[in-house]
Computed example of a mutant assay.
Amino acid sequence: MNKERLMQVLLGPVISEKSTIAADVNRQFVFKVVPDAKKPEIKKAVELMFDVTVDNVRVVNIKGKSKRFGQIKGRRNGVRKAYVRLAEGSDIDFGAGA
């Protein structure tokens, strides 16, 4: 895995009520990732970008919802999320720049 690929694996953090609770209780952080990302790539990308130690990675594929716009049927894009659990003593602070 080259460094350029690892820099493109993470698309951004998912900030929601569920992800905030997971971060507080279980040291899990949720990221949107590219659809073809593998668990070892996600682990190395998080360790590279945030300088933390990753304990494990779980990946979820969420299918896009079917929507209607009048008579036109459409579909939202699907999302691949990674739940990353950090090792004891590691932490990511997304609000540091504020």
Rank of each mutant, 00 (worst) to 15 (best):
F94D: 08
K38C: 03
F94V: 15
V34I: 14
S16K: 08
G70R: 15
V9W: 05
R58Y: 07
A96V: 15
F69V: 14
N77L: 13
D51R: 06
D24H: 09
F29C: 09
P40S: 08
V57A: 01
I15E: 00
E4Y: 05
S19H: 09
K73M: 12
P35S: 00
S66F: 11
A82Q: 11
V25Y: 03
F50R: 12
V54G: 07
P35A: 00
T53I: 11
K38S: 05
A87L: 06
K18E: 04
V46Y: 00
A96C: 07
T53P: 03
M1K: 13
E88N: 13
V57Y: 03
N77S: 10
P40Q: 02
G12P: 04
T20C: 00
I21P: 00
G95I: 15
A22R: 04
R58L: 12
N26A: 06
G12M: 02
A87D: 06
M7A: 11
I42L: 06
D51M: 01
G70W: 07
E17A: 02
P35Y: 01
K32H: 07
N2W: 09
I62W: 00
I92A: 01
A22N: 10
M7R: 14
V9I: 15
V57I: 13
K39G: 06
F31L: 00
R68G: 06
I72C: 05
K32E: 03
R5I: 15
S90G: 12
F50D: 04
D24M: 08
L11T: 13
Q28N: 11
G74F: 04
N26C: 03
K18I: 15
D55H: 08
S16L: 05
E17N: 06
I42E: 00
I15A: 04
K67V: 15
V54L: 05
I92H: 04
T53A: 07
G70H: 10
Q8K: 13
I21H: 00
D51E: 03
Q8Y: 06
A96R: 14
V30L: 00
K44P: 07
K39Y: 09
F69A: 01
M49L: 13
P35H: 01
P40L: 07
V25A: 02
M1E: 01
R85S: 08
K67R: 12
I72P: 06
G74H: 03
A22Y: 02
K38N: 08
K65T: 13
L86Q: 07
G89S: 10
G89N: 03
G64I: 15
D24G: 11
A37M: 01
D55P: 08
P35N: 05
F29L: 10
R58M: 05
G12Q: 03
F29T: 10
F31P: 04
V52K: 06
E88S: 12
E4A: 10
G12R: 07
R5E: 07
S16C: 02
I72A: 14
A87R: 11
